[in-house]
Write a protein that binds this DNA or RNA. Structure first.
Lengths: 353, 353
DNA sequence: ATTGCGCTTTGCAGCGCTGCAAAGGACTAT
DNA sequence: ATAGTCCTTTGCAGCGCTGCAAAGCGCAAT
């Protein structure tokens, strides 16, 4: 049996197809009488508009895509948790795509491919693409970039002040009296801009305290995940002069580092203090709970959606904006110890599940 | 400037639009000569097919949707990690939707709404809908259901044998000599089928060991998350006769329970042994590492996609299948202790990030 | 009664592509 | 040379909807 169409409804209601369309879309002025007639016909036939046809006719898909490197990274999952409802509230469906941080895949997505027609705009968290790679993008694609890129003026960018946040994190470790502070997560190559900003903060905090930076304590990792965190921490502990504190570039890295410490029978924070970055839910429950930098994820999600919608509507001035969300330092057991952090009921989080 | 169309390409190449379409789709027999001509024209004009138009013409969208209750639940995130590439490999884009376990929202998605046109099929992990609610679904929607429902014959179902897995988990605790075993996560109401199967396994293991079940040790929670796990554990510890082991219905619940134990200064597993369910990455790194039931997520993802594709193609016999993936017990520190579990390097996981 | 105005409803054409089936061409067999 | 066969290419119509602008209609003002 064929799916009922606008035309079928029109016929039954005794009006033109165009009028049915008007009713369906809540358009224009339609008399209550006709509206009712049409609505009755719609109900009777169980009509539902064919979105595919509408898309072709309007040239818009009503979908936006959110592109992240990894879906199973809690930070992104939590961010999506904010983006999806925000987008839905303004009538957009969200498509999620994961790139595995692959440069080619990312390039394909922002380039002028055929999928372009499937979404009206994109919120993109690049990993494999460097700042300059972003230039190859389809200039027609409304784009909001998350994280540590800066806008070249043709798209909007939403993030937090990574340098300031990292400085806060390291200053916190210094204020606790730690002397040998390591950093895990640097990425000294073109696509490692996010990491480099954090390293910059690491240095700034040392400078502000009049401390020299021991370059050998800055450890690079390929990714910001648990496995790399554990490996890097283990390497640090193999040294003759291990650190007494570590600034990890993500909470996952911190989680891995703590795991490595525990495996060697070391205590956190007594032997080594750990601070992470992102404030994922995991860190609020782990043992010890993880001190961290909390970006305002809800704000980031909302800002990203807002900007994208405005860009899609085309009501925005061309110049791209660089927007900054708030962040704050959350000190927990992994730096303060169980006693001092005893207000260690999990603090109200941005999201929870 | 207008987007170039099939017609433009045809004109430049000096062939009919239909031929261009044939080339683009790799259809039928096209001489190398014409193909080359057309391809040159495509390249020259930078043509890309309009997916929206194709969708309307074919009546298919090339998208499938995966509906989960919560995106930021690691289990689902890890599952998606498997589903997305599997689907992409067979030419489908994946749309992800999150329902917050809301019954109405879930009902809308499987019902005969307008979004139906946006996807060719659905992989659905219900939470708010009970078995019988599933009946209201759009019968035309190719559907694969994940988790603890069983097929009513009109859709496929993929899961693991929850009763057997739960029995294994509890038998493990019993084999370690634990006497008072609690369960956290029961949901004794219509939508709690998944939970109830685990409770069933809990009982079965006791029965097999000739042990009575202390009903008061079966704790219900609204959800399978950390917060509920912590709360339930705290309640258990407030009792005069706390348990010496707990079977948690998810790793997140286990994580919350461990958090609560640590807050009271109790040790895991010395004071209370904990076993979870799902084998999320988190559990492989937490302190202690969490013993768990490991479902074969990769297999689940693959099976779900396979079945869905076959259903979409309509080449499948109507009767729905109930498919079971493998599971295994992974004993880690939270039951064995650090010493015995010292092979506690994180085992190779299904996924990692 | 006539004109003009404003609101509602309509018709037309077309979004860009593909399904279908027939037309056209080259080639083989007789 | 002619008919038959097979492969390539084409034309047509239409997927179901919306943008646009005109047509229709009721009512008020003259």
């Amino acid at each position: 049996m064929r799916e009922t169409t606008l035309r079928d409804v029109a016929e039954l209601a005794g009006v033109s197809p165009r009028t049915v369309s008007n009713v369906v879309n809540g358009y224009a002025r339609v008399t209550d009488a006709t509206r009712e007639k049409v609505e009755r016909a719609i109900a009777q036939l169980g009509y539902r508009p064919n979105v595919l046809a509408r898309n072709l006719a309007t040239g818009r898909s009503g979908q936006i895509v959110v592109v992240v490197p990894y879906l199973d990274t809690p930070y992104f999952a939590e961010l999506l948790q904010g983006i999806i409802p925000a987008a839905r509230k303004v009538g957009y469906n969200v498509l999620v795509d994961q790139t595995d941080g692959d440069r080619d895949h990312e390039g394909e997505l922002i380039g002028r491919g055929s999928r372009r027609f499937l979404f009206d705009g994109m919120i993109f968290s690049p990993l494999g693409l460097s700042q300059e790679d972003l230039a190859v993008r389809d200039p027609d694609l409304p784009l909001v970039v998350l994280g540590e890129r800066s806008s070249d003026g043709t798209f909007d960018h939403v993030g937090i002040d990574d340098v300031a946040a990292s400085t806060d994190a390291v200053a916190h470790l210094i204020s606790l009296g730690r002397r040998r502070i390591a950093a895990i997560g640097d990425q000294p190559y073109p696509t490692g801009e996010a990491a480099q900003l954090r390293t910059q903060g690491f240095r700034a905090a040392h400078a502000a305290a009049g401390r020299p930076v021991d370059e050998s304590l800055i450890i690079s990792t390929a990714r910001f995940n648990r496995a790399d965190g554990a490996t890097a921490m283990a390497a640090l502990l193999d040294r003759a002069d291990p650190p007494d504190a570590v600034f990890c570039y993500s909470d996952l890295v911190a989680s891995g580092a703590i795991h490595a410490l525990h495996q060697r029978g070391l205590r956190v924070p007594e032997d080594v203090a750990i601070i992470g970055y992102d404030d994922i839910e995991d860190g609020r429950y782990s043992s010890p709970t993880i001190s961290t930098i909390q970006p305002d994820k809800r704000a980031i999600a909302q800002m990203a959606v807002d900007r994208l919608i405005k860009r899609i509507a085309g009501t925005e001035p061309v110049p791209g904006l660089d927007l900054r969300a708030e962040h704050r330092l959350i000190a927990r057991e992994s730096t303060l110890g169980a006693a001092r952090a005893s207000s260690s009921r999990p603090p109200p989080g941005t999201t929870s599940s």
